[in-house]
Amino acid sequence: MFEDGTIINELLIERLNYFIYVVLLLIGLHAMIAKKNLIKKLIGMSIFQTAIILFYVSIGVKEGSTIPVYLPEHDPHGSHSVPSDTNETSHFDHGPVILDSSLVKGYANPLPHVLMLTAIVVGVATLGLALALCQRIYQGYGTIEEDELLAKMESREIRSKTLSVQIPKDQKLPKKDELKKEKSRSVSKSKTLSASKPKPKGKK
């Protein structure tokens, strides 16, 4: 079953890391697109990004390699080194040294890992923002289910249209209210929202 050259061999043995990342990627993508719940979408997004991070990390790895920190025998400054004939001359060199390529084989490639640090930061920022948006949506519409959300937005649109045509001045009032509240800065956000919520009901 696992002979060389078959597709199964390639997928499960030689390129297992890629196979896993693709599976994760698709799971994430599916969740982002097909799930109705906004939080589930975000979970999908996290899986999606993690899959990419795994992909990057795995391409930096080599068989039998170690973390990309100077091995004692490569250290040009020699503080950790076992004295040997090869690096005696460069003992007092400071700054980056170009190492002999035959020696460097033992390191994993550090660059993809470093890149992923940045990508993780970006991912966290995106997730944070998305969660804040979810909170905002929940406060505004009382739901984080996509279809319910759409239905509510539609009904509000119809209502606001009829309102704005009949009493255009009304629209301005809440803004002034908000302005005052913001100026005094004593009213917390949730209060403003709860205060503004009953308004449409009252107009019914």
């Binding site: 979408k41 999606f48 990004q49 995106t126 923002l129 948006l133 949506i137 959300l149």
Partner: peptide, 14 residues
């Protein structure tokens, strides 16, 4: 706008 942004965010991230 917040609701619209959410969709933007999902697609933009993809």
């Amino acid at each position: 706008a917040a609701a619209a942004t959410f969709n933007y965010l999902i697609l933009g991230t993809i």
